[in-house]
Nucleic acid binder design. Structure first.
Lengths: 217, 217
DNA sequence: TTGGTGGCGTACCGTACGTTACGGTTCGGC
DNA sequence: GCCGAACCGTAACGTACGGTACGCCACCAA
């Protein structure tokens, strides 16, 4: 598993100026991928390279800070567990699915995942762990309470929340993220995402809904 | 979509020696990732750098040839469509799922996908397209006939084979490939893979089996 | 005004690596 | 045995980039 501590508080004593620098680095990362240079970041952020090295140590430090900075920006409100019925549960699941599809199809997510995957090969830093913690695992932490609330309300039926989450995850994401990361021109319009979210939710309810339960899964 | 022609015949006039060189490059790619050097490849393959450049043009050419060489090695026998019943269909699906999980969890696949994802960012070559064509799309081409045979035999019920395939794909792969690419230590034992293949197959049959069909999906 | 600090811009250094050039060696054909 | 081609090993070149040093300015406190 992943080592603990990869999930940082985020804006850990970052000045306005430093955040602006990281935003510039992030934009450059989206445009050029892992081939960005320290010189380019300095130029884009209108700061000197020496400042970059003073603040972030080295290139990996800058990349790590950038990824954490982006990760810290995607905080979401928890879902209320009161008054849960099949309609609100369905709406919640569809919303999760839709949000997730929007995230993984965004330029920022694609760029970040690309560099994280690349760095995971020669393990100098833990970009992969950071991305995982703030992406897939954060999603699980937010969704599992909803699933369990649904089970307590008698709307869902599953043995293990983790397994149920992964099933939902698979039904939602399918091959989208890998195809995008590999450069496939997969256009995800608002309508497509909405349709996929609804389909995945219905499939999940067909598998784990308390009523129409098929044979033992 | 992907441009045509990415799916090369494979051993397109490759001498034994050249294949050996590519195997060496592939092993090095698994060990060191995209940070391999031409010098290292030449040393590992016991050949000169001049030969590498003469045969493959430049570094990208060598990488492309290596990826295509590996892709050409995974050819599989088609499934017979005769005498299809629910048992043999289930067995076929489980076999596909198991094979796919084994592929995406192999060191070779992880390394190849890592470099392909990295290169997809700055589009110099088409490693991503090659990997997609010989991975995800090749799987679809092999599996779709099975699904359609199951439908003709009255065992499966779906409208679009592509959509059905993607559902099965999602149920099988879930988050496995992304977690592995991002460096998560996800141990996939033989038993785990078998269990996941069976679970995914049962879930798929629950969704698309002709008998126990839930409400409209 | 003076001194100090933080940060910008830039020139510079060291190095790693892609690419090329070249001398030496093997090998098949005549 | 001789020739040319293919290939090995290695040295050398050019460049790009990470990292550092330094001069300068703006701001601020006394």
């Amino acid at each position: 598993m992943l080592q603990a501590g990869a999930e940082i508080d985020s804006s850990e004593a970052l000045t306005e100026r430093q955040q602006a620098v990281l935003d510039a680095a992030l934009r450059l990362l989206v445009e050029e991928g892992d081939s960005l240079t320290m010189t380019a970041v300095a130029r884009r952020a209108s700061c000197s390279k020496e400042t970059l090295y003073k603040w972030f140590g080295d290139r990996d430090g800058l990349l790590t800070a950038t990824v954490q900075w982006q990760a810290s920006k995607v905080r979401v409100a928890p879902v209320d567990r009161k008054g849960l019925d099949i309609a609100s549960l369905t709406a919640s699941l569809e919303r999760f699915a839709s949000d997730w599809l929007k995230v993984i199809s965004s330029d920022t997510s694609i760029a970040l995942n690309r560099v994280a995957v690349g760095h995971a090969g020669s393990g100098k830093d833990d970009l992969g762990a950071i991305v995982l913690q703030n992406g897939r695992f954060a999603l699980a932490r937010r969704l599992k309470p909803v699933l369990e609330a649904g089970r307590e309300a008698g709307l869902l039926d599953f043995a293990d929340a983790e397994t149920a989450f992964r099933t939902f995850f698979g039904l939602v994401a399918r091959d989208v993220q890998m195809r995008l990361l590999l450069g496939d021109r997969l256009e995800l319009t608002e309508a497509t995402i909405g349709g996929d979210a609804a389909r995945a939710t219905q499939q999940f309810l067909a598998l784990h809904g308390a009523n129409n339960r098929p044979q033992g899964l």
